[in-house]
Design a binder for these strands. Sequence first.
DNA 1: ATGCGGGCGGCCA
DNA 2: GTGGCCGCCCGCA
Length: 138
Amino acid sequence: MGMAKNSNNQGIKKRSDRRSYKTEGDGGAIQDAPGEEDVGLSKTERIWQVVASIPKGYVASYGQIAKIAGLPGYARFVGTTLGKLPRDTRLPWHRVVNAALAIAPRGSGRMLEQKRRLRDEDVSFKGNRVRPEHHWQP
DNA sequence: ATGCGGGCGGCCA
DNA sequence: GTGGCCGCCCGCA
């Protein structure tokens, strides 16, 4: 998603909204909530919840996760958030790929682990890309 | 404050 | 289909 050439900019609007509320880096609860149960959760927590809901055998993109979490435009933030997870996390971080459904480039070790985990769930690839039939559609 | 680099994502060659 | 450019947002120096 993202909002590259702003024409239908939610990005800009979003940004000003955020500013007006208050500066809360990440532990803060935020306002524009998608689901009511999620109000009060921090951005990071909301991202965790969405990632946790991806079914086994499917993948979702960073931008998709952000949007579902009610944080359009936060795709990169989703990436850095997942990158901070402890090594032994239960969260299925491996089910998150980029918009092209490719394993995001980073240290080859993690990339390999991600691909291996996905394969263990019977996710099939074409090169570095997950085949579209495994794209999660909530 | 402010500059810069990230597990990103559209748009347009 | 692919690659560059550039905008989005967050942390951190």
